[in-house]
Computed example of a mutant assay.
Amino acid sequence: WLQGTKEWEDMLEGFDERGYLNARRWKPGDDPYTLYAFNQRESERIPSNRALRDTRNYRCSTLHYDSDLPPTSIIITFHNEARSTLLRTVKSVLNRTPLHLINEIILVDDFSDDGDDCQLLTKLPKVKCLHNTRREGLIRSRVRGADAAGAKVLAFLDSHCEVNKDWLPPLLQRIHQDSTRVVSPVIDIINMDTFAYVAASADLRGGFDWSLHFKWEQLSLEERAHRSDPTQPIKTPIIAGGLFVIDRSWFNHLGKYDTAMDIWGGENFEISFRVWQCGGSLEIVPCSRVGHGNANTYIKNTRRTAEVWMDDFRLFYYSARPAARGKSYGDIRGRVELRKKLKCKSFQWYLDNVYPELK
């Protein structure tokens, strides 16, 4: 909302965007997919502050939010991310978020080859940079960012996403009303070949099968019939992973993340089960939209999740994913103790009350 004004141009004046992007460009004759598994040439062709179509339901623009919503620490972790996508992520946050709601943007550089990927971005307003001295992975990097955060609310984003118009206030409103909610936007699709931004359906929630593969599920006809207001949040058994907002005290109370998980993948199952079984709830908020590329899961992390949170139902996981049986999953005693300390409910309760559709 400031973009294009004199004040905005003054804030960005110290940042040399052309120099930042020219440092590591795709070269004609190279395969543009080699470095990042997406079309680097197309990413560099698209402006860092490109316009996006507002993909929300028209009713969203008529909603009003509390005037005292809390400022937020936005945490973005990355390892050897393409500069064009990292810059576009940060610029989208600065361009489409009321600045008084951004306490800071914390970039956690997970031991990238070039520390300047992160450091040079601190010339942008609100941006701070933390450098890991060795590779830690997504989970430990996010915890480091959360521990350094100065705001009462944390927003976790991935380093190759673009937030859409007014994405943050509807998420903060839900947490402002109930700090035990963990809220996620509708995740629109960024095509990794063309970088086209494609609207996703707002009638979806997160689901999974017994192999702990995440999938999007259509709301049932009955659920859709009860949703007379398309702006209302949708309860979801699981969140997709990288994009959510949480009260910092609640995040700490719940035990942050399982920091024995490696690299990335599967952490969305662990935190989703933990939130539901330990007294919170998960929601997708249709009036918040964030575009994102694709991702996968990591077997050690899902096995840790099954062992700590799924009780005897972990046998269904092993039946569906037999290769997991032989994988090391580390020491889980600390997480088992956390579950006891928080007096968390059983996985049977989760199936009965949150995800009865999983037969």
Rank of each mutant, 00 (worst) to 15 (best):
K6I: 12
E9F: 10
G14A: 13
D16F: 10
R18H: 14
R18M: 13
G19R: 14
Y20W: 11
K27V: 14
D31K: 11
D31R: 10
Y33C: 06
Y36D: 05
R45Q: 10
P47W: 06
N49H: 12
N49D: 14
L52E: 11
R59K: 15
R59L: 15
C60T: 05
H64W: 08
Y65M: 07
S67W: 10
S67Y: 09
D68E: 13
L69N: 08
T72A: 03
S73T: 03
I74H: 03
I74Q: 01
I76C: 03
F78W: 02
H79P: 01
N80W: 02
S84P: 10
R88P: 04
R88M: 10
K91D: 03
L94F: 07
P98Q: 11
P98H: 03
L99R: 10
I102R: 01
I105W: 02
I106D: 05
S112P: 05
S112T: 07
S112R: 03
D116L: 13
D116C: 08
Q119K: 14
T122R: 01
L124N: 02
N132I: 04
T133E: 14
G137M: 04
L138P: 00
I139N: 06
I139F: 09
I139M: 11
D147Y: 06
A149H: 01
A149P: 03
A151L: 07
L154G: 02
L154V: 01
F156T: 03
F156N: 02
C161H: 06
E162L: 15
E162V: 14
V163W: 01
K165G: 06
P170Y: 06
L172R: 01
Q173S: 12
T180Y: 07
S184K: 05
P185Q: 04
D193R: 15
A199S: 13
A202Q: 13
L204D: 06
R205F: 11
K215P: 00
L219N: 05
A225C: 07
P230F: 04
Q232C: 07
Q232K: 12
I238V: 15
I239V: 15
I239Q: 02
L243I: 15
I246M: 15
W250E: 06
H253Y: 12
L254N: 02
K256W: 09
D258P: 03
A260R: 12
M261K: 06
M261S: 05
W264F: 15
G266E: 00
N268L: 09
F273V: 02
E283Y: 15
P286I: 09
S288L: 08
R289P: 02
G291A: 15
N294Y: 13
N294K: 13
T297K: 03
E307H: 10
E307K: 05
V308A: 02
M310N: 00
S319D: 13
R321F: 00
R321C: 00
A323K: 00
G326N: 14
K327Q: 12
S328I: 08
S328L: 10
Y329E: 07
G330R: 01
G330C: 03
R333K: 14
V336I: 12
K341G: 08
C344E: 01
Q348L: 13
W349R: 06
L351I: 14
E357Y: 11
